[in-house]
Design a protein around this nucleic acid. Structure first.
Lengths: 203, 203
DNA sequence: GCATAATGTGAGCAAATACTTGCATCTGGC
DNA sequence: GCCAGATGCAAGTATTTGCTCACATTATGC
């Protein structure tokens, strides 16, 4: 019994042998569709077809279309959280500007790795019930930023972290949506926006 | 003959007498549904029902569901554009900070008037073909910001305007999505973000 | 080898949805 | 008053979509 009830959005992914491959194929297919055709095209039948799996198999592991999306969102937040936490840890103590750079770089890497998928997942996340695990990951990311600010003596860190995340998100989203792919250029602008908000002397 | 071909997204809204009221009722119903239940709930049948109009009538004026959304988006961009242009005109020559404040206020008024509708329309806009008129309005808004920057001697104004709009959008979106409704508080933070990016001495 | 459980299959169902069509009703100019 | 065109109506169609179910295939412990 590996948690299989509540037929709503939590998935029931028991795994034994080849079934793992089936689950992965489903997730990868869903990601590809989301990336290339957007969430309007994401139908369970298409996902199954692209994954090379029958719909029956799909529904054996994901009780709902939303469960598939939720799993993709969770995986994305997990990776983003881990990247940010690692970046913050590596840069901890090197001073505000260096630490900001590290976090910005992690954020940009995330957005530039697969811009359209990242965007689609963020849009999708809005209308999903947002399971506890994903919510915890988002909170964790905010905590990372708060920690960085506090470590550098910035007061009212939670409120400021909120704004900085919003600003960074807005910039990255607008730029990637416009087709920008230049990491260094975006890095400079993010830095300018964040340090500017913080009132640093700037570069 | 009042432009009625191209059955795709441009609407065919001939108006004579009571038909105007029908069109308005349809748009208002669509806005209410979008605002309260999100775009997933926006079906043509529901729109007609809420508008107190038959689906036949709906399709007489809007050839497509997308046409209704496009019209709502166009109207919203129109209002936003006019507000921003008026604000910029009124504050022109009063110095960078005052002019920024005026533009920020116009933006915030827009977002706070009906946060969920504004957000839904912006999300909807992304996947719509974006007709020429709406595109022109968006360009016009960018021009307003560019003009304000140039008037105050800021170089590379178009690129900076792009970033400032992205930043403002990100902040307003995150805050309203989180339920914030305090105009003054948001105004201060927007100001801080924008003037910070511009490298002004800050408040 | 074989019984048993795990996994895979895909035709098909019920509901929803965008949209059409044929007809009824209203309205304004004469 | 009357009629031609404008407007309104809603049952109905064709399609799509999420999902089920009855059965086939495969893997594994013994």
């Amino acid at each position: 019994m590996t948690a299989k009830n509540t037929p709503i959005n939590p998935r029931k992914t028991p795994r034994q042998a080849r079934s793992r491959a089936t689950c992965d194929a489903i997730l990868e297919a869903a990601a590809r569709i989301l990336e290339r055709q957007g969430d309007e095209a994401l139908t369970t039948n298409l996902v199954a077809e692209v994954a090379g799996v029958s719909i029956g198999s799909l529904y054996q592991y994901y009780p709902t279309k939303e469960a598939i999306m939720a799993e993709l969102v969770r995986a994305m937040r997990q990776q983003m959280h881990d990247d940010m936490a690692a970046a913050a840890r590596a840069a901890a103590g090197s001073g505000l500007e260096q630490e900001v750079d590290a976090l910005v770089a992690a954020t940009l890497r995330h957005h530039l790795r697969n811009p359209s998928l990242a965007h689609a997942l963020e849009v999708a996340e809005e209308r999903l019930p947002l399971d506890a695990e994903t919510a915890a990951l988002k909170q964790g990311m905010a905590k990372v930023v708060v920690g960085t600010l506090e470590r550098n003596g910035i007061v009212d860190a939670p409120a400021i972290a909120f704004d900085l995340i919003a600003i960074g998100h807005g910039l990255a989203d607008a730029a990637t949506s416009a087709g920008e792919r230049d990491f260094d250029c975006l890095q400079r602008r993010m830095r300018r926006a964040i340090l500017g908000y913080l009132g640093s002397p700037q570069v």
